[in-house]
Lab assay of single mutants.
Amino acid sequence: GPREVTMKKGDILTLLNSTNKDWWKVEVNDRQGFVPAAYVKKLDSGTGKELVLALYDYQ
């Protein structure tokens, strides 16, 4: 199956793709996968990378 990404509340993840309104593709610890968009919030990183903050645990 697809590689699952797990996250804990407060984690910072790299946002790869947010074109789908329900599932965003993120990368964390060299793993890529989809997380519910409602579970993360975009951060203003000030760099080229888009980052998101995990609002809830997800696994």
Results as ranks from 00 to 15, higher is better:
G10M: 02
A37Y: 03
K9P: 06
Y56L: 09
S18C: 10
D44W: 11
Y58Q: 01
D57W: 03
S18W: 08
D44Y: 12
V26C: 03
T6D: 10
S18R: 08
D30G: 15
S45K: 09
P2Y: 14
L55H: 03
G48L: 08
G48K: 09
S45W: 12
K42L: 12
D44A: 12
G46M: 12
T6R: 10
K25A: 08
N20S: 07
K21V: 09
E27A: 10
L16A: 02
K8T: 07
L53P: 00
K41V: 15
T14S: 07
L43W: 07
V5S: 03
V35K: 00
F34M: 08
V26H: 00
E50Y: 09
V35R: 00
K49Y: 08
K25D: 03
D57Y: 05
Y58T: 02
L15W: 01
V35T: 01
N29V: 05
V52M: 04
R3M: 14
L55Y: 03
E50A: 12
K25S: 07
F34N: 03
K8Y: 08
S18K: 08
G1I: 12
K9Y: 04
L15G: 00
W24T: 02
S18H: 08
T6Q: 11
V35E: 01
V52D: 00
L15I: 05
E4W: 15
V52H: 02
V28K: 14
K41Q: 15
R3A: 13
G46F: 10
E50W: 10
L15R: 00
L53F: 06
E4A: 14
G33C: 11
A38T: 11
K42M: 09
K42F: 07
D44E: 14
Y58S: 01
Y39Q: 04
L55K: 04
G1L: 12
N17H: 06
G10V: 01
A54V: 12
V40L: 15
K25F: 15
D11L: 03
F34T: 04
Q59L: 09
T14H: 09
Y39E: 02
N17L: 07
G48D: 13
K25E: 14
D30W: 05
E27I: 10
D11V: 04
L55W: 02
A54Y: 02
K42Q: 07
D11R: 01
V40I: 06
L55V: 06
A37H: 03
S18A: 12
P36Y: 04
A37R: 08
A38H: 12
A54M: 07
R31I: 15
P2R: 13
V52S: 01
W24H: 01
G1P: 13
K41G: 05
D22M: 12
Y39P: 01
P36K: 03
K9C: 07
L16S: 02
V40S: 00
D11G: 03
